[in-house]
Nucleic acid binder design. Structure first.
Lengths: 246, 246
DNA sequence: CGGCACATTGACGTGCATCAAACCGTGTGG
DNA sequence: CCACACGGTTTGATGCACGTCAATGTGCCG
């Protein structure tokens, strides 16, 4: 049972091994983690701010996002999680936070109890370091986007996000022939970039006008990643992708 | 020798223990870490992007900031580090990054070799978790500010930063009678908030006009933390301060 | 067919950047 | 002691990149 979880655990293990040296015993301990598979619908809340968590969430299928919200209700998505990524790894060390996590599409998740993870780390300390490393990767991406949001104009911000998504989807094997399924509508893109949905619309059409991207329905085609990257000032090193995807 | 380092290590240990259970042996291992004291001048680069680091940096005195920079040279400071805080803890798991760290004032730092820290974690795995927790705290602060920057107007952004600084300086024992030394000029405040220095000037004078703060020279007085907090929509839980400072 | 979610387009207002000038405190050298 | 330069703050004028509001268009689904 739970073959989707097994598959995703293997993907996750690959992520870890790309950046941290793990022994065979370490790897086996990870693959042996107990998991529980869960289906969630698009727009469902996966993590509610202020509640204590008892398990980490690994994405098997779909797309999941973390956001913060301020008093007046406006949201900013600070992270996206693709299949094979942990959606709230740091819940292991900070089980209650004031962020929220929601499924952006119908998704399959797999939950891994904190207790099991802590027990594993106690026996395999270097797995703990590997997890910390992976968590830091997530945060570094958040910080990079924060820098872009605060210093660049709307066109560059959007182009930068599309560059990042293109690179990450490609690394996840979800890109075929410069084309991938972008499961975000324009208001959601706005919530990732701190801008209004109508301005997203204008900037997207500007990107089309410049022959950087093309859209048909939900699928996005990167026509020229060069012009897109130039508009964005995109410099992918912060993603720490394996060299074949850089 | 190095009594400034010892003192700061003790402060740092207190931070860790406030959020993670550590045994006496764990604590002793931390206090026994080898340290090297370093003086740096204001505006000196402490960490240069793209270079590999071999030690973590603990702030003993002064103020230190982490920033990202985009191609056209504009910077955004994403973190500030006060005495007793680790300035780039995650360098332990990601020894090369594309952020930079610079001293904002003349500062005393103490360097702790990665090798010693890793050895310690191998023997005391729960210290590793405590460090991860502390690192996550730093990033969570970055993410919170990112949310504020992307969704709120200039006055709220500035008020929010001042609220955060007030709370953190107070927790660090650097506030006396609602007054503390703010070692940032208006361009630096601008680089923390993604806005121009002249607009900082205007918003600051607006805060004065509303009797929220007052400034004489470098020292900032919080006249009414209520009105300031209300303008900011400040909700300090993300800082995870000990309850007596919340 | 109507209803709904989303995308597009236009008109309008405004929050902030930018440029420029004046002001102020501090240090430096004659 | 004054002259001057210099880093920082303040203030004003101007422009533009956005947000907001509103209308229309476009699938898609019941």
């Amino acid at each position: 049972m739970a073959s989707a979880c097994d598959e995703s655990l293997r993907l996750f293990l690959n992520r870890l091994r790309a950046h941290w040296d793990l022994s065979d015993a370490d790897c086996r301990a990870i693959l042996d983690l107990p998991t529980e598979q869960v289906f969630v619908r698009a727009r469902a809340e996966v993590v509610v701010p202020g509640t204590k968590l008892f398990h980490a969430v690994l994405v098997c299928e779909g797309l999941v996002g973390r956001y913060g919200q301020n008093p007046d209700g406006k949201r900013l998505f600070t992270s996206l999680y693709l299949p094979g990524e942990m959606a709230d790894l740091h819940s292991l060390v900070q089980p209650v936070g004031n962020w929220a996590i929601e499924a952006l599409t119908d998704s399959i998740l797999c939950q891994i109890p904190h207790t099991a993870m802590k027990r594993m780390i106690a026996h395999h300390p270097s797995v703990g370091m590997a997890l910390w490393q992976d968590d830091a990767n997530d945060w570094a991406t958040t910080a990079e986007r924060a820098g872009v949001l605060a210093t660049r104009g709307a066109l560059a911000r959007l182009a930068h996000l599309l560059c990042e998504l293109f690179a990450r989807f490609r690394a996840a094997g979800l890109v075929e022939d410069h084309r991938f399924e972008l499961p975000l509508n324009q208001s959601q893109l706005g919530e990732m970039l701190g801008m209004s949905s109508v301005h997203i619309s204008r900037m997207l059409s500007e990107l089309r006008r410049r022959n950087a991207v093309q859209m048909e329905g939900r699928t996005l085609t990167i026509i020229s990643s060069d012009t897109l990257g130039a508009l964005a000032g995109f410099e992918p090193s912060y993603l720490r992708l394996r060299p074949e995807y850089a």
